[in-house]
Design a protein around this nucleic acid. Structure first.
Lengths: 206, 206, 206, 206
DNA sequence: TATGAATGAGTCTTCATTCAT
DNA sequence: CATGAATGAAGACTCATTCAT
C-alpha cells in the first residue's frame, strides 16, 4: 500500500513538474497535453488518471508552485532573531534570492495571473491569490508591528499600506527582472528596503 | 481620401476597442475572433482587412492600452511644479487614480504579461515591456535625482533601486486590488509613498 | 436571398442524406463525422455550420426519415375511395411497398429505436416515436371505425387494439425482412390483412 | 474442479447480468466496461478473463436474454391442451405477460436490433435473429396448421403469413409499450388475437 | 486467478483564416 | 471594401484492452 501510494505520488509529481515546464514555456493555452505526457515520459492517457482535466492539472501546478516558493520564503523568516529591520532585510533578501531558482518558471506566475482573469478558471485562481496575498501582507504587517512595539519604527507608520506595498514591490521587481535580464532585482530590493526601513525608523536613527 | 481614411481609422479603433473588451473578459486564447466582430458590429472577415492576424490585433490592443494609460499618467507629471516629494506624491496619486478607469480592462495587463511568456508572441511583448519599464523607471529616477539635487533627498539614496521599486509597487498594488475588491490601492499607495519619501529625506526633515 | 437560402437548404440536405447513408451503414456510434463530410463532399467543419453536434445531425436524419416515409405512406391513403376493407388493404400494400425503397436505410430505424433507449438522446426520440405511433394508430383506427359505421365491420371489434396491432405488424414485418432477405413482407402482409379483415367482417360476409 | 467451475460460472453470470443492466441503460456504445466491472463488483481486468472483448460480452448478454425470455415463453406452450385457438390465445397472453418482467431490459432488444446493422457485429446478430424468428414463426405456424387440421381454421388461410405477422405483432406491441407507458400491450394483444382467430375460423363459428 | 494502472488510437469539436461574391 | 460560408488543422479527452504484479 505504502509502496504503491509512494509510486503514485511520485508519478503525480513527475506529471506536475513536466506540466510546469511546458506551461512555463508555452503558456496555458499553448501547452499541449500530449507534450506534457512526453515530458513526463508517460502515456497521454495516464495524465487523466491523475487529473480530471488540463485545467485541473494547471491548478495542481499552481499549488505546486505556491508550495515550492512559499516554503522557501517562510523558512527564512522563522529562523530569524535580530531586529525587525534586520528581519525585513532578511526577508527581502531571501525572496529576491529565489529569483535564480524561479527564473525559468516565472512565466508560470504570469500564466496564473492571467488565469485569474479568463472567465473559465477565474474564481479558483482569484480566490487563491487573494488568500495568498492576505497571508503575505499579514506576515509582513506583523513584522512591522513587532518593530513598532520594540520602538524601532515610528508609531504613525501606516502598517497595512507598507505591508501591502512591500509585498507588491517584491513581486514587481521579479517581474521587471523577467522583462529585462540586465535588471538586478536583488540589488534593487536591497537599495529600496533600506529606504523603507529608514522611512519607518524612529527619528533618532542615524 | 481624407474622409475615407478617417472612416478607416474609425473602424479600426472600433475593432480595437471591441477586441479590448473581449480579450479582457475571455483572455487572449479564450477570445474568439467572431465575437470581436460581433462586438465591433462588423463582419468577421473585415477584421482581416485591418489586421493580419488575431495576434496582430492583440498587439494593437496592447498599443492602444499603453497609449490610453500612458498618456493619462504622463499628463499629470508634466503639469507639476512643487517639491520633488510633492511631485512623487502627485505621480503616485494620479497613477492609482487610474484604477477606477482601468479596473475593467486590467485583466488585459495580465494577458499582456502572459503573452510575454508564451513563446509565440514572446519577444514582441517582452521588448515592449522592457522599454516601457525603462522609460518609467527613468522618469521616476529623474524625479528623485531632481529632489536630490535640490537637497530634499539624501545623496546616498540608491536612485535606480528606488525608482524601480516604486514603479513596481504601483503595478503591484493594482494587482492586489484586482484580486481583492476590498483592497484600496489608493490608500496603500498614499501611506507608502510617505514612508519612502521620509526614508529618502535629508536628516533634518521633521 | 432566396438563392442563398436555396443553396443553404440544398447543402443542408446534402449533409443529411450523406449522414443517413453513413449512420445506416455504421450505426450512430460507429459513424464518424469526418466520413459524413466526405460523403457529402464538404469540409468537416461545414457540418458544424449546419448542425450543433453529431447528435443534432442524427436527429435531423430522423426527421428526414419520418418525412420521407411518412409522406409516402400518407399519400396513398388520402387518395382512396373504396370500402374500408379495400382501403386497409391498400394502406397495408403501400406501406409494404416502401420496403424496396427503404431497405437500404432501414438500419436507421433500428438506430432510432436504440437511440430512444441510450440515455443521452432518449427523451427526444422517445417522444417523437410516441407521437408518431399515436398518429399512426389514430389513422388506422379511424379507418376501422369508418368501416364499422358503414356496417362492413362488426361493432364488437376492439378498434384501438386492432389499430395498434396492425401498425405494429407492419413495422415488424419489415424488421423480419431486414433479418432475412428471403422473407417477403409484402406477401405476408397481404395474407395477413385478409385474415384480419375477415376477422372484423360482419357475419354475413362470404 | 467442479467447485471452481461453479464459481467460474457464477462469476461469469454475475458479469453478464451486470452487463445487461449497463447495456440496457446506456446502450452498447455508451456502456463503459469499467462500469460493468463496478456493477459486477469485480476488477475491470477480470472481465477479460471471461470474455474476449466488449463485443463478445454483448453477445453473451444477447444469448442470456434469448434464454431468459425464450424459455419463459416456450414453457407456457408445451403445457397446453385445448383448442388451437385457445393455445394461440394462451401463447399471446403469456408473451405479453413477459412485459412486466422484461420492461427494464427491453432497451436491450433495441440494442440487439441495432447491433444487427452496425457493420461490426452485424452478421453474428443478424444470423441469430433470423434463426430466432424462423423458429418462432415455425412454432406459430405449427399451431395454426394444427388448428387447420382439426378443422378449427379454414384451409385457405395463408399460414406462413399469419404466423410471421403474429410473431411480428407481439414484438411490435412491446415496442409501442416501450415508447408509451400508458399503452397496454396485453389488452391490445387480447383484442387483436380474437380478431385474428375469428378471421381464420371455419365459417360455422358463431 | 484477479487486478487496476498504463496506454494511445480514435473522435468530436472549435476556430483562425481564406476567398468568392 | 465588406462579408460570412467554408475549411481543416489541431487538441482535449475517452475508453477498450493489456500486462506486470
Amino acid at each position: 500500500m505504502t509502496v504503491s501510494d509512494q509510486l503514485k505520488a511520485d508519478k503525480r509529481s513527475r506529471i506536475v513538474e513536466a506540466a510546469a515546464r511546458v506551461f512555463a514555456s508555452k503558456g496555458y493555452a499553448g501547452a499541449v497535453v500530449a507534450d506534457i505526457a512526453i515530458q513526463a515520459e508517460i502515456g497521454k492517457g495516464t495524465i487523466y488518471e491523475y487529473f480530471d482535466s488540463k485545467e485541473d492539472l494547471f491548478f495542481a501546478v499552481f499549488e505546486w508552485y505556491l508550495h515550492r516558493t512559499g516554503s522557501a520564503a517562510m523558512v527564512s523568516i522563522g529562523a530569524l532573531g535580530g531586529s525587525a529591520a534586520e528581519r525585513l532585510q532578511a526577508l527581502s533578501a531571501s525572496l529576491m534570492n529565489l529569483w535564480d531558482e524561479i527564473r525559468d518558471v516565472f512565466a508560470l506566475v504570469m500564466e496564473f495571473w492571467a488565469a485569474s482573469s479568463s472567465s473559465q478558471m477565474r474564481q479558483r485562481f482569484k480566490d487563491a491569490f487573494r488568500q495568498g496575498y492576505d497571508q503575505y501582507r499579514a506576515l509582513v504587517a506583523s513584522l512591522i508591528r513587532d518593530g513598532m512595539q520594540r520602538g524601532e519604527f515610528r508609531p504613525d507608520v501606516d502598517i497595512e499600506s507598507v505591508a501591502a506595498a512591500l509585498v507588491g514591490t517584491w513581486d514587481a521587481l521579479l517581474l521587471q527582472a523577467w522583462f529585462d535580464s540586465r535588471f538586478d532585482p536583488i540589488a534593487a530590493a536591497n537599495g529600496f528596503i533600506d529606504v523603507v526601513i529608514q522611512g519607518m525608523a524612529s527619528t533618532r536613527q542615524t
